[in-house]
Design a protein around this nucleic acid. Structure first.
Lengths: 203, 203
DNA sequence: CTAGATTTTTAGAGGGACTCCATTTATACT
DNA sequence: AGTATAAATGGAGTCCCTCTAAAAATCTAG
C-alpha cells in the first residue's frame, strides 16, 4: 500500500526542495520579504505547484509531519502508564525526532516564534495538540473532553510545552527539550493537577 | 489635551459604525464570506477609510480598547497587594467592562474563538498580555522577565485566562468571567506557583 | 514497446486583503 | 473668510491564494 514508485520519490524530493529553498530565502531576506514566486523560482517549479505541495506560505514553515507521530505515540500507551508518563514519553519521542533533524527544526522553530504572523499561526498547531491531549485525559479519567478542568489540564500541559520550546530556542537548541519540559511540568506541579482530576484512580 | 471637537466625535462614531456594520455582516453571512468592500458599503464609507480605522479585517473583531486599561490596572497596584490579588483585580476590572457591553463582547469573543483565522490571531493578544504579566512578575520578584520560571508563571496565568474565556463563551456569557478565572487559578494551584518564585517574600 | 489512463505540472484569469499616493473634502484655527 | 490641518477617497499596484483547462510526466495493460 505504501507507494514507492518514481512518482512518489519525486514528490518527496520536490517537497523537500521547496522547503529547503524557502528556508534559505527566509533566512537570507526574511519571511515577509520573500514571495512565493521567489520560492517557486528557487525551487525551479511553478507557483501553482508550490500550492500543490503547501496550502499556504505559512505551511512551509509550520507544516509538521509530527501530528501523526503524536497520535500514534499517544495511542501506544503501555498499560499501567500514568498520564504524566504518557505525556513525557510522547514529547520525548517527538523531541528525539526534533533532535534528529535539529538543524532544520531549530530554524523552523525560531521562525515560528519570531515572525508574528507565524507565531500566531503556530498556536493553531498547539491548539490541535491541546485537543488531542484533552481527549486522552478525558478518556483516562472518564470525564468529558469539554469539561472545564479537563480543558485546563490539557491547556496547562500545552502551555508548559510551549514555554519549554521557547526556552529551547532561546538556548539556541542547546540542552534537551524533554528536560526543559519536565522542569516546566514540575514547576507548575503538573502531577497534582492531574491527580486532582481523578483523586481515586492512578492517572 | 483630550480632544473633544466635532472631528473627534465623528471619528468615534465612524469607528463604531464600521464595527457594527461588520459584526452584523459577519453574523449574517460569516467572517470569511464577508469582504471589506461589503463592510465599507454597509458603513457607508470607502474601502480606503476602512483601513484608516482598522489595520486589518481581523482587527475589527480583535481590536480591543482594553490594553491600555490593563496597563493602567496593572500599574495601579495598591501597596501590599499580592500578585495573585493584582491579577484577579485586573482581570476582574476588565471583566466588568466586558460585562458592561457584554452583548457585543460575547459576539466578538465567540467569533475570535470560532473562526480559525481569528482564533490564532487572538493569541497574539494573549501573548502581549503574557509579556506584560511577565514584566510585572519580574518586577515584583526581582527576577528577569526572560527567566524561564517567570515566563512559565506568566504563561500559566494566561492559559488559565484563556480557558476561562473559552468556558465563558461556552456558557454563552452566563456566569462571571472572574469566577471562572478564580476557579481556573485554583485548579492549577496558582498561588503555589507564584510562591515558588520567591519563597521568602510575599508575592 | 506502445497506447490509453492517471497523476502532476503549469499558465492564466481572477478575487480579496492590503499598501501607497495624489486629490478632494471636511473640520479647525485666527 | 481664509488658511492650515486632518480625514476621506479613488486608483494603481502587490501579494497570497483559488480555480480551471490544457500540457507534460508517469504508470499500467496488452
Amino acid at each position: 500500500m505504501s507507494p514507492t514508485g518514481l512518482r512518489e520519490r519525486k514528490k518527496q524530493k520536490t517537497k523537500a526542495a521547496i522547503q529547503r529553498a524557502a528556508m534559505r530565502l527566509f533566512k537570507k531576506q526574511g519571511y515577509e520579504e520573500t514571495t512565493v514566486e521567489q520560492i517557486a523560482a528557487a525551487a525551479d517549479i511553478s507557483e501553482s505547484t508550490f500550492f500543490n505541495y503547501f496550502p499556504s506560505k505559512e505551511d512551509v514553515v509550520i507544516y509538521d509531519e509530527y501530528d501523526p507521530m503524536m497520535f500514534a505515540a499517544l495511542a501506544s500507551a503501555p498499560p499501567g502508564e500514568t498520564l504524566r508518563q504518557t505525556f513525557e514519553r510522547v514529547i520525548g519521542e517527538l523531541g528525539d525526532v526534533f533532535i534528529a533533524d535539529s538543524e532544520v527544526m531549530l530554524e523552523r522553530a525560531k521562525l515560528s516564534l519570531e515572525e508574528p504572523e507565524l507565531r500566531s499561526r503556530a498556536w493553531e498547531e498547539f491548539d490541535k495538540a491541546r485537543e488531542s491531549f484533552a481527549g486522552i485525559i478525558a478518556l483516562r479519567t472518564g470525564r468529558e473532553a469539554r469539561d472545564f478542568e479537563v480543558q485546563l489540564a490539557a491547556m496547562t500541559l500545552i502551555a508548559a510545552g510551549f514555554q519549554a520550546m521557547v526556552e529551547w530556542v532561546r538556548l539556541n537548541g542547546k540542552g534537551s527539550l524533554l528536560e526543559l519540559l519536565v522542569k516546566a511540568l514540575d514547576f507548575v506541579s503538573y502531577d497534582e493537577v492531574l491527580a486532582r482530576l481523578e483523586p481515586k484512580r492512578q492517572v
